[in-house]
Design a protein around this nucleic acid. Structure first.
Lengths: 112, 112
DNA sequence: TAGTTATATAAACAATAAATTATATAACGA
DNA sequence: TCGTTATATAATTTATTGTTTATATAACTA
């Protein structure tokens, strides 16, 4: 699934996660994002393009500025996929529970 | 945070996600994982190494086999980070709610 | 012990990605 | 209109990643 590829690899970069964390506080322009990071403006522009392509942020036009904000449903696909893993882990845990419950409680056996 | 880097970039590869999805059904050896994918065994071994390095899977030794399974808390860090984003989005949504609530309800205006 | 099976590691290569510098576009303000 | 500000794009370089083939290790099996 292409969407998951782009979303996860967008999230894999620490600068992009920092940008998202900044946007969690509210809208910001490209320069407002570029300043705190020791990084050139073109570099930040590219990161924003990646985040936009992954559906994690949206931008509007305000004169010469392009304020960015978090996309409301940006992490939906990622959440859904991870939910599958979580569910599988929970089921495995339950299965382990069953195994432990089914075991004859043989006295004196040391079980880790 | 190094852990998030490795976890997210491990999840960014579709083959590795497919491996995790397979392991969601239960333990599997390297060859059991390699067969369904049209991919050589060394390639799968490398993917498994990446997943193990990211803390997403664990392996045990069973004779000459190395069965893999999902790591119980593998996605904990990822979950936690994404929870931050979700919370931020919810807060932004509440803020929007406040704005809408504070607006004078001018009659006849069409509001989406 | 010899052969086979299961996995890991190394070397090599193509493709991708992140960064920088330099330059383009386009709106604003004097 | 001219200079400045905000952002985007292009070209280039360096680093990383995913893959394959070839080879190594190590445990079963006959």
């Amino acid at each position: 699934m292409q969407n998951l590829d782009t979303a996860f690899s967008a999230l894999a970069d620490p600068t992009r996660r920092a940008i998202l964390a900044r946007l969690a506080l509210g809208e910001a322009t490209v320069m407002e994002l570029a300043n705190p990071f020791e990084m050139t403006q073109p570099a930040v522009s590219r990161h924003l393009k990646v985040l936009e392509g992954a559906g994690l942020i949206v931008r509007r036009v305000e004169g010469t500025k392009r304020p960015c904000r978090l996309a409301p449903n940006g992490i939906a696909a990622v959440d859904q996929w991870l939910a599958m893993l979580r569910e599988a882990l929970a089921q495995n845990y339950n299965r382990l529970d069953e195994v432990l419950a089914a075991m004859q409680p043989e006295t004196g056996k040391d079980m880790p």
